[in-house]
Every structure is written in structure tokens, then in C-alpha cells.
Design a protein around this nucleic acid. Structure first.
Lengths: 342, 342
DNA sequence: GAAGGTTACGAAAACGGTTTCGTGTTAATA
DNA sequence: TATTAACACGAAACCGTTTTCGTAACCTTC
């Protein structure tokens, strides 16, 4: 078991000082070519790698970014994370990830765990509970400390920082219009229980489209489902109660489940009823019929978030601090598959 | 923007030495109650948090663990990661994750990025390419350096370290037996192209069961599919060519796709044909019919891997180094749903 | 040959903690 | 009153780097 080698070891072994070794390995002009070659060869031979922790302490930057998300076993967050990781690694940054599990307390604890010098900045999407309570003191604190923060998807207007969001309202509007253009009259909205800002925005788009097409809003057509453990009866009762000829769903699970119930009730898709869901995950791709979806381009969102964060981190280092906060909007697209008419 | 406060600040402000502050905050007996109270109150007021980087440098341990996996947008790995993160966070460890994207080079680069003092140990699952080449010098190197390493799922026999694996052979055997007990005679195996050790083990179990039931092995019943971009025709041709009354699939995607083709060919599930897939993901749960699966208990695997790693890290610190390497076997279970007979 | 300029390197401070050891003050004891 | 022990704290080393500054030794130049 060979221990990691340090500057000190090299210096002692070669009979020079630590500073000389450090400079030589950075190819400093200060050191003679002979000495540099000797030191570099030795370092290479023993596979010297600077200790990152020491460098971090000295430089006051870690090249780590902290990601706090509500869930990882979830297609959208996974793809966003993929984007973050991809961009960050490309820039030589590592990614430390913590999962809040939709819990406010865990979110706070996670942030505290990371906010002790371990990271250069945060990328976050708020937990359900945080959004409900709208308690964002933990975010305020990091912003006040001057630690760069980028919020994505589940953001809050109450905090001033960089953000990456989807054009939720517009795309929901477009999706609804698409259903209307198919001739659908009674379009249901399958949405979440607790109030996520994204669900709200999607509902706005949905309503706007209906209104523009002269269709009266009917609250009975809004089906609110719990985040998990969805009972099929609930959906069945809904279909029993309401004559529905299309469903716009804020996620793919709701859409798939509604589709499944509709099929069981003998409805033909897309002849009798159309479906559009948010999130272009595996479920949509392999469902029967394949589900028309709103692709959220998670990877793009992640890359953009990482870019915004890293740009700001590096700007801070260079001293050009005061750049205004931006909100980047990622354009969702509709992927037409078999659950809607063409 | 208030800067983070350090021991030095507190010391200066309170007119004591840094050592006194450090000790007071650790509630050392050496410091008088008065002084301690004063210092602790001050620290609390200014929300003092020790700088993790400095502590890491001093202690030579980071309380970070590095996870390198082939893919994150993949249900199984995601659940394992969830388990790792859960256990690790509970023990006060953070998790840095890198994705190798099934590429050998990226795997090596990722490990090098982390192996410079940033982490106390690795948890890994090998990339497809690494398994193909069976080039494991990068693993050897970290093991030689005495850095704890835990391999899970996609492991190699050629490296001596802690491992967490599934009882792949046995569970594939059981699944096949289940199909045989249903009276199935021509059981297909849908498997991957490149040779993953897990696919191989599953194939072994499959073959063993057939042999024990006196059924001659027929290589024509083994359907090898590419990892992505599967063409439906390939599967259709397979069904056209071979009379198949059951399919055991090494993952859920293959199973779902085969099921979809079988349905299109007019076969009744599970009357005419049964399906069992590995991985209890969303696809299986929401497919039609719902797919009977082998649950790999990813969270358990992740927790176990994290536990093994952290135990070893902490043992090393305490000096009781030489504990033999273990291989923990997680028992998969079969979840019966609608794609098999009861 | 004195003044000034390079060259090539080392000493030391700094990053923010932890920890060992030394020491001045006070209290207890003989 | 002298000795000693307990108490409360500070100095300093250390973790592994980076970086500033100082300085011998040599080289120019007039």
C-alpha cells in the first residue's frame, strides 16, 4: 500500500525546497529548466497529484457544486441532474447531490451539510413542503453569504437569484390548443394535490386556451390526484361522472393511469379520447398507445443551470461580481405520438 | 453579504486565542465554564460553522464518498444511489456522484477526478466497456493506495474488495422454474448484447432450470438485443421464427417490448404466453398487463454498499485495518403481477 | 571595481482548523 | 512559608498547497 506522495516528499527526496517543487510542477519561469525537468520526471514517476483539499483550502474554492433536489427516482430530476453533471464535469467540477425527499427539514439539513465550505455554489429545486410553506430562509441565508444559487423548475419568486424554468404556461396552452384543434370539447386537467408552482402555471395555460376557444371553465374537469398511491377507482369515478374527450396531465404517471382506465372503460385512443402528459419518460415511450408528451428537456435545463452557476462562481473569483440575476427559460416541445390525433 | 466567520474572528473579537475558541466550541474540560459560555454564545450568534475543508485537511478524511456508476437515468442505478445517499447522509457523509456513461475512459477520468483527497472511498458499478475490456488497473490503483472500494452489481472477480451483488443466478433459476411450473415449454431468454456478468449469471440460472426440468437448451430461444434503439421487427421476427410460450428478460424494457409485440401478434397474456422481467421499475408497474418482475431491491443494495464502505473507512481510522473483504448478497424477490399465471 | 540587474531558489506566511505541550496563576497541602 | 497540584489558557506545530518576498551568486556595464 503506497501512500499518496506530497510536495514535501518530492522536495526531501530531491533535496530542494517545497516551493521549488510547487513552482516546477507549475512550469514556473522562476525555476531552471534542469531542475524543472528533474522534478517533473520524479513527480510523474511517482504519480503525484496535488491534494485537492489543500488546494481548496488555499484557493477558497472547491470546484464542487451542491445539488439539492426533491427526488432522484424520478425521470425529470434524473435528466436534469444528468445535464448538470455533464456540464460540471466538463468544466472540472464535481457534483455533490443531496435528496430532500420533498421534505422541508431535509432540504434545510442538506443545505447546512453542504454550506460549510464544501461547495462553491448550489443548484436546487424546491421540495413540495418548502413550496407549500413558502419558507425560504435557508435560501436567503446562502444568498446573503454571497454563495451563488441557481433554482430550477420548482422556483420561488421571493428569492433573488439565477433561475432556470420551463415555459410551463405557454406549453400547457399549446398542448391544450392542440387538443382543441382536434375538436375536443371536454378537456380534463389531471394535476397534483399540493400547489407546485409548475402545476399552477400549467393550469393557467390550460385555462387560457379554453377561454380563448370560448369554452367555459368547468372545475369538475380538474382531477386532483395525490402524488403517490393513486387509486384507480378515483379515476374511474371521474370518468363515470364526467364525459371527457381529452386529458392534459401535469406528469406522465397520471396520464398513463388515466389512459389505462379509459381503455378499460372501452374508450378508443385517440378516436374517442386524447391524452397529453408532461415528461418524456420511459412510461410515455413504452405505453400502449405511446403517449404524446410535453418534453421538458431536462438535460438542457441541467446544463443551463450548471452553466449559470459556474459562470457566476468564476466571475466572483475574477472580481467582476455584480452581474444581474437572470431567469433562463427553456422551451418545452410537444412530441406527438399515438395518444392524440394528427 | 456577510462573510463566513472563522475561529480567528471569534478569537480576536473576544480577546482570547484561537486554541481557546476551538476547545470551547468542542466543550473541552480545559476551558472554564464562563469562557465556554461566552464563546459558545458568540459563535451561535454569528452562526459559526467550522470550515469543512480545513477540518478535512487536518483530519485527512473528508466525509465524502465517491460514487461512479454507468448511468443515472436508469431505474436500478437510481434506486441504488438512493440507498447510498440515504445511508451516507445518515452517517454525516456526503455523496459525490460521477457518471461513466458506460465508457471506460470516462470511468477512469471520473476516478482520477475524485482520487486526489476529495473522498474517503469509492462505491462503483463497472461500465459496460470496462467489463468488456476487463481492464481494471484504475481499480487496482485505488485499492493499492489503501482507498476503500465497494463494487456493486457489475463487479469483477479480478479485484479484491468489498462487493454487493444480487443472487442473479438463483433468482433467474427461480423465475425460470416458475415459468416451467406454469407448464411453459419454450421459454425464451431476452438478454443484452455485450457480456455483463449479471446477464451471464442470469443466463446460467435460466439454463440450469431448463436442464433440471429435462428441457433441451435451444440457442435459438436466446434473443440478444442491443442496449438501445431496439427495432420492433427484430422482436417480431423472433416471434415469427420461434414458437415461444414464455419470456424471461434480463431487464424491464426488453420484457415490455416483447410483451407489446406479442400482444400485437394476437397472443393473450398470460394465457398464451408469460413474461418475467428483471427490475421493478415504473414500466413494469404501469404496463398492461402489469409485468411480473424480479425486484432487485436497489435501495437495499445501496444502503448495504454504503454501510460496508463507511464501516471500512471508519475502521481504518481507528487503526483496526485488516478486516477481510466481504461479498454481501442481496436476495432478489419475484413480484407476481399479471403477466404470469398464478 | 562598484553599481545594478538577472537568475534560481528558499523562507515564511497564509488558508482554517485540531491538538500537543508549555506556562502563569491560583489553591491546596505539608 | 515553601511545595505542589489543579486550573485555564496560549504558543506553536501540523495538514498540503500557493504565493510573496528576500537573497545569495553570478553577470553586465561603465
Amino acid at each position: 500500500m503506497k501512500q499518496k506522495i506530497t510536495l514535501k516528499h518530492i522536495a526531501r527526496e530531491l533535496g530542494v525546497s517545497i516551493s521549488t517543487v510547487s513552482k516546477a510542477l507549475k512550469n514556473s519561469e522562476e525555476i531552471s529548466v534542469d531542475t524543472k525537468e528533474k522534478i517533473q520526471a520524479f513527480a510523474k514517476l511517482y504519480n503525484y497529484k496535488p491534494n485537492n483539499i489543500a488546494v481548496s483550502l488555499k484557493n477558497k474554492r472547491t470546484k464542487n457544486i451542491g445539488v439539492v433536489i426533491p427526488d432522484i427516482v424520478h425521470h425529470f430530476f434524473t435528466t436534469v441532474f444528468r445535464g448538470i453533471e455533464k456540464y460540471a464535469n466538463g468544466q472540472g467540477y464535481n457534483v455533490i447531490i443531496c435528496v430532500s425527499d420533498e421534505s422541508f427539514d431535509k432540504e434545510v439539513i442538506n443545505m447546512e451539510m453542504l454550506n460549510n465550505g464544501s461547495i462553491d455554489g448550489f443548484i436546487m429545486s424546491l421540495s413540495a413542503e418548502t413550496q407549500q410553506k413558502n419558507d425560504i430562509n435557508h435560501l436567503r441565508e446562502v444568498v446573503d453569504q454571497g454563495i451563488p444559487l441557481v433554482l430550477f423548475d420548482r422556483v420561488t419568486d421571493d428569492i433573488d437569484c439565477d433561475k432556470v424554468i420551463l415555459n410551463d404556461r405557454e406549453i400547457a396552452y399549446k398542448a391544450t390548443v392542440k387538443l382543441l384543434e382536434e375538436g375536443r370539447k371536454r378537456i380534463a386537467l389531471a394535476t397534483t394535490e399540493s400547489y407546485f408552482n409548475v402545476s399552477e402555471k400549467r393550469a393557467e395555460g390550460y385555462k387560457q386556451a379554453l377561454t380563448e376557444y370560448g369554452i367555459e371553465l368547468d372545475d369538475n374537469l380538474v382531477l386532483v390526484l395525490p402524488y403517490d398511491d393513486i387509486k384507480e377507482e378515483v379515476i374511474n369515478d371521474f370518468f363515470e361522472r364526467e364525459a371527457v374527450d381529452a386529458v392534459l396531465s401535469v406528469n406522465e404517471i397520471f396520464a398513463i393511469q388515466c389512459m389505462s382506465v379509459a381503455k378499460k372503460r372501452g374508450m378508443k385512443i385517440p378516436e374517442d379520447i386524447s391524452f397529453i402528459g408532461f415528461t418524456d419518460g420511459l412510461l410515455s415511450r413504452y405505453s400502449n398507445p405511446r403517449l404524446t408528451v410535453v418534453a421538458q428537456h431536462g438535460v438542457t435545463m441541467g446544463e443551463e443551470a450548471a452553466k449559470m452557476l459556474i459562470d457566476r462562481v468564476e466571475r466572483e473569483i475574477d472580481g467582476n461580481d455584480e452581474e444581474a440575476y437572470r431567469t433562463h427559460i427553456v422551451e418545452a416541445t410537444i412530441i406527438e405520438r399515438e395518444s392524440t390525433k394528427n
